[in-house]
Computed example of a mutant assay.
Amino acid sequence: MNISLTGRHVELTEPIKAHMNASIETLSKYNMDIISVNLIATSQTKKGKPLSVIEFVINLAHKNSIVIKQSDEDLYAAIDLATARAQKALRRMHDKDNHHHKDGINEAKNEAGNGIDLHEASEAMEDEIVPVELTLYKPREVEDVLNDIKENKKLFEIFIDNDGKTRVLYKRNDGKFGLY
């Protein structure tokens, strides 16, 4: 990895260079093919305040270059913020390359369907419905159901009448009873 440190209107002292090199070395943990890193430190005045601007240009093999520009009043803080942004960008590229490989729908279907007979699987999934006569629900008179509702203070009761129809007896808001 080629490292280039440049200072524009800023004198790069040994502690500043050491801090820049240490921050650049943290980028190597993502195992990306970094060809070169250019770090440019610039001093500017904006609205009467001195401002330090750090620009990272990271050239990667077989990928687009990453350019990050960060400004802060303190030079060391600008370096740290730019390094954090560069690490985030490299981590995203690394994760995208290694962990987010998407298979096509046809590959997924083929992998899921290996060794499975679809006809047998569809027959096994079909449920068999068997009609059952419930002896628990005997036909009831409307008067008996009305007495049950009054005694138990229920709002409604579903029952089968003597004709075999399913009926609902319910209490209306006006205090009377309705039959459906």
Rank of each mutant, 00 (worst) to 15 (best):
64 N>C: 08
152 N>P: 02
27 L>Q: 03
136 L>S: 09
58 I>D: 02
145 V>E: 03
85 R>M: 07
145 V>M: 03
168 V>I: 15
8 R>W: 02
9 H>F: 06
78 A>H: 04
70 Q>D: 11
47 K>E: 10
35 I>M: 04
18 A>C: 02
74 D>L: 01
153 K>R: 05
89 A>E: 15
46 K>P: 01
167 R>I: 06
168 V>K: 02
84 A>Y: 06
33 D>L: 09
165 K>V: 07
170 Y>Q: 13
38 N>V: 09
121 A>N: 08
7 G>E: 01
95 D>C: 04
109 K>D: 08
3 I>N: 00
115 G>H: 00
63 K>Y: 09
27 L>C: 06
76 Y>F: 10
133 E>A: 10
51 L>V: 14
157 E>D: 10
11 E>I: 07
46 K>I: 15
120 E>T: 03
63 K>L: 13
73 E>I: 03
173 N>R: 14
172 R>F: 13
82 A>Y: 04
2 N>S: 12
132 V>T: 09
98 N>C: 07
105 I>T: 12
127 D>W: 08
97 D>Q: 08
120 E>L: 10
98 N>E: 08
62 H>F: 10
36 S>K: 14
42 T>F: 00
51 L>T: 13
7 G>I: 00
69 K>V: 02
46 K>D: 13
127 D>P: 06
128 E>H: 09
157 E>N: 11
155 L>W: 03
48 G>P: 02
19 H>Q: 11
95 D>Y: 05
22 A>Q: 11
120 E>Q: 08
132 V>Q: 11
161 D>W: 05
60 L>V: 03
84 A>L: 12
129 I>H: 05
142 V>S: 06
46 K>F: 08
56 F>Y: 15
118 L>N: 05
103 D>K: 14
28 S>Y: 10
8 R>H: 12
137 Y>H: 11
174 D>C: 11
117 D>G: 01
144 D>Q: 05
62 H>S: 10
166 T>Q: 08
15 P>H: 02
59 N>G: 07
58 I>Y: 00
174 D>Q: 10
153 K>V: 02
175 G>M: 05
26 T>S: 14
26 T>D: 12
154 K>H: 15
156 F>Y: 08
50 P>D: 14
93 M>F: 10
94 H>Q: 12
6 T>N: 03
